[in-house]
Simulated scan of single mutants.
Amino acid sequence: MAVTIKDVAKLANVAPSTVSRVIANSSRISERTKERVREAMEELGYHPNFNARSLVNQQTNTLGVIIPSSAKIAFQNPFFPEVIRGITSKAYLEKFGLYLSTGQTENEILEEVRQMVQSRRVDGILLLYSKVDDKVINYLIEEDFPFVLIGRPYEAEAMNVSYVNNDNLKAAKTVTEYLLLLGHENIGFIGGNLDYVVTRDHKEGYQQALKKAGVESKEEYIVYYDEIQEGGQEAVIELMSLKTPPTALVVADDLMALGVLRMLDEMEISVPEEMSVVSFNNVMLSELSSPPLTTVDIHIYELGFQATDCLIKKIHDPKQPTKKIIVPHKFIKRQTCRKRIPEKEISS
């Protein structure tokens, strides 16, 4: 015979309603009582029927997680497994499950989000990317459905969206200023997809730093590639074929920077002696590259953890005001940047 809440209540010497509140992790129940009830549940082998509870509470205790189109490409980038690690950590603490999107195109993702919302398959949605004029964000705003964005929303949507982000403009400005202080003026910018807001913020920070230093921003030094590692290699070929190639590069993320380092090595261009390279994200591979990569630690795990915390609070209290949470970044100096030596000093 199946163990019931009444059986647990009897063993723990509490009311059945108290057991229900412990299962829901209610703040009205003391930690001592919670511990006693949980011990009784474990002793009896009782497992709550969350499906039945969701019918009563009209909640699924499940969060939808939306990754960019093509999961295969997304998971080639260490950013996404790490941000999902932060999401799962907080979700586990709050007794929430996850429903991961599987759409391979923008239209498939939008249709999947519609199904999640209309069927009430999830209580809220986490968007792991921010695009210009994103149909998913516009739909979620129209439906007044709880969601939190990891990234900065595009200007048109900014007023109504809770998000967790880094100050990507400031981060890009900082690394460009660092290269300028090392004596570099011909600085290339290798960005990701220009439809993504993070790419636009990185470019803006890069250009602001150049303008402040009185250095011209050259259009031929700015390139964009959708692919990650392969894009970095192709970008190097494009930039190094210029009549006056750059002596330093600001690269969209660490995985793309690894492609940059590989192609520079094939071209026998020494890093950092002949080319300085700086990137973003500080994934584990950046420390293991040869040479170890100078990068910006954006605390990816914390982005996922904070976004999940924000969404769950929004689910519990829909009247909460819109939140804008900025996770600090940290510049990590390693071995891919050095002071620019003027050509006349090299020749002498």
Rank of each mutant, 00 (worst) to 15 (best):
S162W: 00
L242W: 08
L249F: 09
H47D: 01
V236H: 09
V113H: 02
R340M: 13
T336P: 08
N282K: 00
E177T: 11
E238T: 12
N186S: 14
V250D: 02
T88H: 04
N166L: 03
F147A: 06
E39T: 12
Q104A: 14
K6T: 11
N61R: 15
T295S: 06
D123V: 07
P48G: 00
F96R: 12
S20Q: 07
F145G: 00
V22S: 06
E204S: 04
G103V: 11
Q208K: 13
R28G: 00
P291Y: 02
L180A: 08
V223M: 02
P48I: 02
F79M: 05
A235P: 05
V277C: 02
A209T: 04
E39L: 12
I315W: 01
L255D: 04
F75L: 15
V271F: 09
E155V: 10
D144V: 08
M267A: 12
V296M: 05
A235D: 10
G45Q: 07
F305L: 12
E31C: 06
E219I: 06
L285N: 13
N57D: 11
Y163N: 14
M267Q: 15
V132F: 10
N25R: 14
S289K: 07
Q233I: 05
E185T: 13
K173L: 02
D144N: 12
E177R: 13
G103C: 05
E230R: 11
E94Y: 01
Y221D: 03
G151H: 01
K212T: 15
V122C: 05
R200A: 11
R262W: 09
K135A: 15
V250S: 00
K131S: 13
L239W: 06
T199G: 07
I332N: 04
V19E: 03
T62Y: 10
K324A: 09
E106R: 13
G45F: 05
L93V: 10
N61A: 11
V14A: 07
V22N: 08
K243N: 14
V65Q: 04
I73Q: 14
G124M: 03
Q208H: 12
S26Q: 10
R338S: 12
T322I: 15
E219F: 01
P246R: 08
T308A: 04
G259F: 00
D167C: 05
I84Y: 08
A158Y: 11
R32V: 14
I109G: 01
L303G: 10
G214N: 09
C337S: 05
I332L: 09
I222E: 09
N281C: 06
S69A: 15
E230F: 00
R85G: 12
L149T: 04
T4P: 08
A91T: 09
K324P: 05
L311H: 06
G103E: 05
V8H: 03
R28W: 00
V296G: 01
E42I: 02
R340D: 02
Q335V: 06
P78F: 01
A257T: 01
T199Y: 06
M256K: 15
K319D: 14
T176V: 04
M1H: 10
Q76I: 06
C310E: 03
P245K: 01
R338H: 08
I190F: 01
G259S: 02
V296I: 12
